[in-house]
Design a protein around this nucleic acid. Structure first.
Length: 475
RNA sequence: GUCCCCGUCGACUAGCGGCCUAGGUCGCCACCCUCUCAAGGUGGAAACGGCGGUUCAAAUCCGCUCGGGGAUGCCA
């Protein structure tokens, strides 16, 4: 348990093998919030012991994404790949003390052992057969050129138990936990070992991590004791973030990385707000909360036990809430970079500002906002096939387009002047019946920016040109 | 197979034995507003997995059961 005289020290310990998974992002957020809530410190440790899969660029991207979320950390970033020497020393000392032993099985042999145990309905895993290898046998294996792994000896009987802030007492019978690898055949340490050592070395007092790690906690705890550290940190295992089918959220379910949401135009504030709600709720039925409010209210003991499905629809709604709450000028600033990338640098900036104003009240994401502006700025305006069909099957389409074109030719070029409601009513149609066709002609689809404003923005010549083009499509 | 964890509306959750004929939010439906689609407004449908206990009283506690998820890796 925590020592009262030590400041709380928490950490996020990602494995940099890909983009930042939303689950990891939420774990990082919970760690950060709880650390700040307790007035403690929050550290960043990159768990890159698997040298074949870990990439520095992923670690860098991870840090960048946390900053994007508004999360900062204390001290320097720790890379486990810089600390192999320390781990190797620890492994050797465990070996010397007889708390670990050398193994030489091939992957095929291990699989066979596992299959056999499964067959016999025994707990899965390694059977510990190399525990009592003689020096001669060990030498013989080495002479054969077999790679060596080191396994930690787990107890054969008894119970492992720890207190979890979210789940209460968690226990397992040791007979179900087999001896596990702490050093791989290539000499690198595994997660269990590096994780245990670093948490000790960094004086981590509170460990907040995903529920998928709950079983490994017993092994890490045993390792800590073997390493001479009897006291347990405070543990909290957070529920998983699930796909719509309640399975573990993975790439096959679509966008799972924070990068993809950032690139899709989601605001970090909305993302953070949405993520914090997956497993925790602020008081008084509030949903929209600032980071500061989260920090002051967040309590790990109030985190839910059960997994939460990631619901993009709600995220979209929340993002829209944040967009609508923003100053239009700051949206312009943030959106300009994306617009530059999309439209080059020659588009009309005043028109762009005006378009942002029109798009803001109806937007869910920045990308959706730009999509609505496409027919305004994109070089290659055209009407999609499905809308061409829709246009063709509109009653009196020709009549509508003719009347609108005629009106646009000589009306005042103001919002009031452009107003098409009287125009369509003169040919006996209600706006909701007639205007979709005009939307298609002008904006290329039936959903988009308000029509009259849009027409005013593109100007008389372009508006008339689009009306004529649309009529050509009708043949 | 073995072990661990979980179980309130379709989704996220509130609920810590009486404030519950179960509240909020997203989504859905209807209506209003309206220049299509949105946004906004109003209203609505919608849940305590099941069975047994404990108790004057159970969504809340206990047991069983069913269902779901996770771990079983020289990934973390």
């Amino acid at each position: 348990m925590t020592q009262p005289h030590i400041q709380p020290r928490l950490r996020i310990a990602p494995s940099p093998t890909g983009q930042l998974h939303v689950g990891t992002a939420r774990t990082a957020l919970y760690n950060f919030l709880y650390a700040r809530h307790l007035g403690g410190e929050f550290f960043m440790r990159i768990e890159d012991t698997d040298v074949t899969r870990s990439k520095r660029e992923h670690a860098d991207a991870f840090c960048e994404m946390l900053r994007w979320m508004g999360i900062d950390w204390d001290g320097d970033i720790i890379y486990q790949s810089d600390r192999f020497e320390m781990y190797t020393q620890a492994i050797n000392s465990l070996l010397e003390k007889g708390l670990a032993y050398e193994c030489f099985e091939t992957p095929e042999e291990l699989e066979a052992i596992n299959a056999e145990r499964k067959e016999k309905k025994l707990p899965p895993g390694y059977d510990g057969r190399a525990r009592n290898l003689t020096q001669d046998q060990i030498q013989a294996y080495k002479n054969e050129g077999r790679p060596r792994t080191v396994r930690f000896i787990t107890p054969d009987s008894g119970t492992s138990e720890f207190e979890d802030a979210i789940r209460g007492k968690v226990s397992v019978l040791w007979e179900n936990v087999s001896d596990f690898v702490i050093e791989r055949g290539d000499g690198t340490p595994t997660f269990f070992l590096a994780n245990a050592i670093d948490d000790i070395d960094m004086d981590i007092t509170h460990v907040v991590r995903g529920e998928d790690l709950i079983d490994s906690t017993h092994r890490v705890l045993a390792l800590r004791r073997a390493l001479g550290n009897a006291e347990q940190p405070f543990y909290a295992h957070t529920p998983m973030i699930l796909a719509p089918d309640r399975s573990k959220l993975s790439k096959r379910h679509g966008a799972v990385s924070l990068e993809s949401y950032r690139d899709a135009g989601y605001l970090p504030e909305a993302m953070v707000n949405y993520l914090v709600l997956l497993g925790w709720a602020p008081s008084n039925d509030r949903e929209i909360v600032t980071l500061e409010e989260m920090i002051s209210e967040f309590d790990i003991f109030n985190v839910n036990k059960s997994g939460a499905i990631f619901d993009v629809k709600k995220l979209e709604w929340m993002n829209g809430e944040y967009i609508r709450a923003m100053q239009t000028t700051s949206i312009v600033t943030r959106l300009k970079t994306m617009a530059d990338a999309r439209y080059g640098s020659s588009y009309d900036f005043e028109r762009f500002e005006r378009a942002v104003e029109l798009a803001q009240p109806r937007a869910t994401t920045f990308v959706a906002m730009l999509d609505q502006m496409d027919p305004l700025f994109a070089q290659d305006f055209s009407i999609g096939q499905e809308y061409v069909e829709a246009l063709r099957s509109t009653d009196q389409a020709i009549e509508i387009l003719d009347a609108v074109e005629k009106h646009l030719t000589d009306c005042d070029w103001t919002l009031v002047g452009i107003d098409l409601r009287d125009v369509v009513s003169e040919i006996g149609l209600k706006p909701r019946k007639a205007l979709p066709a005009v939307y298609i002609a002008i904006e290329g689809s039936t959903s988009g920016l308000p029509l009259f404003d849009f027409i005013e923005l593109i100007g008389r010549d372009e508006a008339i040109r689009r009306m004529r083009n649309a009529k050509l499509l009708l043949g």
